[in-house]
């Protein structure tokens, strides 16, 4: 079968999602893990736009609006996450995820 444009977009987004996933799983630097999560969020956003682009027309721009909200949430997630990273660094002089175990019972 021939590859439709929608399939192409979805393949791209899933590949990006997996890049983010592999990055978040393999790295132990917490900033890189956060960035991997950001990539996964972006991949999800691409899906919304792709389905809006190839969905039934004319439709309200719900896909775009969802992505706008999602970008706002991702931005606040990055801000809080990095503030946590800085706070952990102040406490332990290291931002390796394996060493942030103080809350472990």
């Amino acid at each position: 079968m021939s590859l439709g444009a929608l399939q192409l977009c979805l393949l791209f987004s899933s590949a990006l999602f997996c890049v983010g996933l592999a990055g978040a799983l393999s790295r132990s630097n917490s900033i890189l893990v956060l960035l991997g999560i950001e990539l996964m969020l972006n991949a999800a956003n691409i899906n919304f736009v792709a389905f809006w682009r190839y969905g039934p027309q004319p439709a309200p721009a719900t896909g775009i609006l969802f992505v706008i909200f999602s970008v706002a949430v991702a931005a606040s997630e990055a801000a809080v996450g990095l503030a946590l990273v800085i706070s952990i660094y102040r406490q332990q002089r290291s931002i390796r995820l394996q060493e942030a175990t103080r809350l472990k019972g």
């Binding site: 439709g4 929608l6 899933s14 997996c18 799983l25 393999s26 969905g55």
Partner: peptide, 24 residues
């Protein structure tokens, strides 16, 4: 991590290529 990434990609791609998506 790479194995997990490729496994997820495989599952997603399989589902995507076999799905009947309505395309305008």
């Amino acid at each position: 991590a790479l194995v997990a990434g490729f496994a997820v990609l495989g599952v997603l791609a399989y589902g995507m290529l076999n799905a009947k998506l309505p395309v305008s």
